[in-house]
Structures are given as structure tokens and as C-alpha cells.
Write a protein that binds this DNA or RNA. Structure first.
Lengths: 145, 145
DNA sequence: GTGGCTGCAAATCATTTGCATATAC
DNA sequence: GTATATGCAAATGATTTGCAGCCAC
């Protein structure tokens, strides 16, 4: 996504498209992993050395609030962020390398369904296991939790 | 579950069945909500006024480590705990009252399946929406986040 | 211009840890 | 008796917040 596209998407949501927010969105758009706020901070810092961690946190929160970014709380220590793009709402965490992947996790549950009497607005599927890469190069040189 | 049953389950896992841990397990067994560590602390404190919050945290962690309790990180602020009992692995969060319910969320994914090349060890389904109680007594007297 | 941001530092909150004492067996 | 757990207080780490100056429009 180019700067113009990012700027437009920010403006549509009512957020001021500051350099920092543009940088955050572009970074989220460029990675396929799900970075933590600190990952975002470190990455964006290389081009914007003056950005503060608070701005990253505040910016991410603003983006989550308007729905441009989703926040994953699959693990306790630090939230992970994901640019919303109509992708499937499934995530896979590798218990070896601890990476988080998007997956196409099928579910029979639909928005509006009643499950045990509760009305569903959204469904998230979290899968745990060993990722394709770790399965392939299964030599154990992984960082464990 | 009575004290004896709890004691036995603890002993089976190699954990010392202290009064505090028994109290934690009995509390988790007695509630249908998913309490936070602080909820557990406050509840157990009524019968064990000397228990410390650190003991609750350490005890919960020990229980999670041996697999007697599962830890839910569906929300960012505080983990929630759930006595393992072979129940379905689905959870519903009410966006009104913020309660967390167990639900029987069907999924076509099985342990051992490959999803996008990743090998699945476990599946969690998280649903968001409005719970049955809030749907019924829809008067808005809820605490929002 | 002005309101919404940024950036810094201080505050907050959940959780962990060090250590001396107490408990389970 | 000995290993393990408790309880207190202090440490840690992610995230939030107050506030003065800055930027987008």
C-alpha cells in the first residue's frame, strides 16, 4: 500500500493521518507476522527515530478503535497487531518458534447465530501446534518460551 | 468436588495439596464464570484470610502447568482461569456485561489436522457478542469496558 | 488559528520473584 | 528432617496517562 492509500484509509475513519500513523500502518501492511507494539516501535523507529513508544501504543489503539487494525490477545505477555483486510479470522500459533500465522480456519458458526442462547457477533479461531516451517526443518534450534 | 477428590487430583499431578491450592481448585470448581486471578484471590480470601495474592498467582500457574486448569487470554487486561474438565473448548465473551461463558462451539478441525501446512495440536474458538442474559433483560444497565 | 497528535516521563496494573518462615509427608 | 509452598514486599514489564509543544488542515 502506498502513502496515498494509507492516508485515505486513515482519513475515511476520521483519524488524522500523521506521519507516525502512516508509518505504523505501512509497517503492518508490509509484514506477514503479527508484531507486538514493541516490534512496531522498533521497526518504525528506524525511519522515524523520534517516535515514542507511547505514540505507537496510542496510534495502535486508535487504529484498533476505528477498526483498521485488530488486536490479538492470544498470548498473555504482549498483544499482537494485525492490519484488517477482510482476511479469514483464524490464527495459528506455533508452540516451537512462537510465530503467529493467519490461517483459513473454517467454522460453521455465522454472525447472528445463537450459540447456547448467546448471539454471535464475531468468531475467532485460535489454533496451536507446530507450524509448517518447524515441521520441515525439524532440528530443534528453536527458542522456547 | 469434595476435599478428598481435589486432594487426590492434586497428588496425581505431583503437586503438594496445600490448603491454599485445594481452596483455589474448589473455588474454580464451584463457579461457572471464568474468574481472574484477582477474583480467585478475593473469593478464597474469605475463608483463608491469610492467603497472599502471590500464592494465588503461583498456585494458578502450577495448576496450569500440570494441566488441571486452563488459562484464557481472550482479553488483554487479566487472564482468566478455568478448571479443566473435558468440556468443549469454546468460549463466548459478552460485549455488554463482559462475562465469559463456556459454549459448545463446533469446529470441523481435529487434532493432528494440517491447516495451511501447520499441524494442529489444539483448537480454541472464541465468540464475541451479546449473551443470553443481556439479550433477555435488555435494559442497558451493564458495565462497559 | 485550533484541535487533534506527539513525545517525554511518571503512573498504573497484572504478574513474577527473592527470601525467610511455615507446612506436608 | 527435608523438600516444597507460603506470604510479604519489592521488581518487572506491558500499557496508559498528564501535559506542554507541534503538526495537519
Amino acid at each position: 500500500m502506498n502513502d496515498r492509500g494509507v492516508t485515505d484509509r486513515l482519513r475515511e475513519t476520521g483519524l488524522v493521518p500523521t506521519l507516525q500513523r502512516i508509518a505504523i500502518v505501512k509497517y503492518l501492511d508490509s509484514v506477514d507476522i503479527h508484531p507486538t507494539a514493541d516490534d512496531v516501535f522498533r521497526a518504525v523507529s528506524t525511519r522515524h527515530p523520534t517516535i515514542s513508544k507511547a505514540t505507537v501504543y496510542n496510534g495502535l489503539r486508535a487504529l484498533v478503535d476505528v477498526g483498521l487494525v485488530s488486536e490479538l490477545t492470544i498470548e498473555k505477555d504482549a498483544a499482537r497487531y494485525d492490519l484488517c483486510g477482510g482476511k479469514p479470522h483464524g490464527h495459528f500459533r506455533c508452540c516451537r518458534c512462537r510465530r503467529l500465522y493467519d490461517v483459513d480456519a473454517p467454522t460453521p458458526i455465522r454472525t447472528g447465530d445463537l450459540v447456547d442462547g448467546h448471539q454471535v457477533a464475531s468468531v475467532s479461531t485460535y489454533l496451536y501446534g507446530v507450524c509448517a516451517e518447524c515441521l520441515a526443518g525439524d532440528r530443534g534450534e528453536r527458542r522456547h518460551a
